[in-house]
């Protein structure tokens, strides 16, 4: 471990360049990051503040700060949102949770199994399958939305949960990541040992290998979750029935009706806030996993 010895002598050298320059570049770096922190967080802050205002106060009051009765108005807005049209918004949230939560969970397992097999077993057609998967990564998902609609209408399944749920299960990029990760984190010797112990291949995957791949699986899950949660074109083209909408499509529909129904503006704003909270919470809570898993995609 040569690294341990080097750092002690390293700080000597930069000091000779003068501390002033170092302070200047430190301040410049902090200034750049500070300015862009404002850029990235101001819109979210505005959304939070505006969701504590009644319809009339949105324009009349200071846009980036709360009013005296913000807390009360916030709760009025929330209950109004959840009660509007018999809890339509709650329905949308549940739909999104179903599409994205269940879809990403199953999709991750399916992608992980495939990527794992591509990495750990030699079989005929392995490279061919992997190349097909790779070109799948390069095909834009929205280019598939219309053809999917045409296929689903052949079997009379448009405007159903399945129409949005089933196509979301396929994640070629997840397979790609899983393959890289399985190669890096599951030693072949371990599989041999499990075999000698009489453990079946499938059981070994679920009890041993999947644990070793856990950070990768969380990363794949999160990014597929975001992809499905954010998906817009597929539900837009598939669904007519409002009760089946995910929350993004629902808010889009409300937003485009604001000019006819002005009271919707309050609900769109607070609804936007409520709809981004699950993702922010998921990312914060699982940060430990995905921040280590993110770099994997670019390894090869």
């Amino acid at each position: 471990m040569t690294t341990a010895a080097v750092p002690q002598s390293a700080p000597e050298k930069p000091r000779s360049r003068g501390p002033r320059q170092s302070i200047m570049s430190r301040s410049a770096a902090m200034l750049i990051m500070g300015v862009f922190t404002l850029y990235f967080l101001t819109p979210i802050w505005w959304l939070l503040v505006t969701s504590t205002k009644s319809g009339g106060d949105i324009t009349g009051t200071s846009a980036l700060w709360f009013t005296p009765d913000s807390v009360a108005t916030f709760f009025t807005n929330i209950t109004g949102l959840f009660a509007y049209e018999n809890g339509l918004f709650v329905k949308w949230l549940l739909n999104s949770a179903l599409y994205a939560g269940v879809g990403a969970f199953l999709g991750t397992i399916i992608a992980a199994m495939c990527g794992y097999a591509l990495s750990k077993y030699e079989f005929k057609g392995r490279e061919a399958i992997f190349n097909v998967v790779l070109s799948g990564v390069l095909v834009p998902a929205t280019a598939l939305a219309l053809p999917l609609f045409l296929i689903f209408s052949e079997v009379n399944l448009t405007n159903t949960y399945w129409a949005v749920f089933l196509p979301s299960l396929v994640s070629p990029f997840g397979v790609y990541l899983a393959r890289i990760y399985a190669a890096a984190s599951v030693p072949g010797e371990l599989l041999e040992a499990a075999r000698l112990d009489g453990s079946g291949e499938v059981r070994t995957f679920f009890t041993v290998s999947s644990r070793l791949m856990a950070p990768a699986l969380v990363t794949i899950f999160l990014f597929q979750f975001v992809t499905i949660w954010n998906n817009f074109f597929l539900p837009l083209i598939m669904l007519r029935d409002q009760a089946l909408f995910p929350v993004t499509l629902g808010l889009y529909a409300w937003n485009s009706q604001i000019s006819q129904i002005p009271e919707l503006r309050t609900f769109v704003i607070i609804g936007a806030l409520v709809s981004i909270l699950p993702l922010i919470i998921a990312f914060l809570g699982l940060q430990r996993f995905w921040s280590s898993g993110l770099g994997a995609g670019s390894v090869k």
Partner: peptide
């Protein structure tokens, strides 16, 4: 085992990726 691992993805990929492209 390979068949068990690859089949679910392969089926879904064919149905919801390859088939739509061909159909389009």
């Amino acid at each position: 085992a390979v068949a068990v691992f690859v089949a679910p993805f392969a089926v879904l990929f064919i149905l919801f990726y390859a088939a739509p492209i061909i159909f389009a």
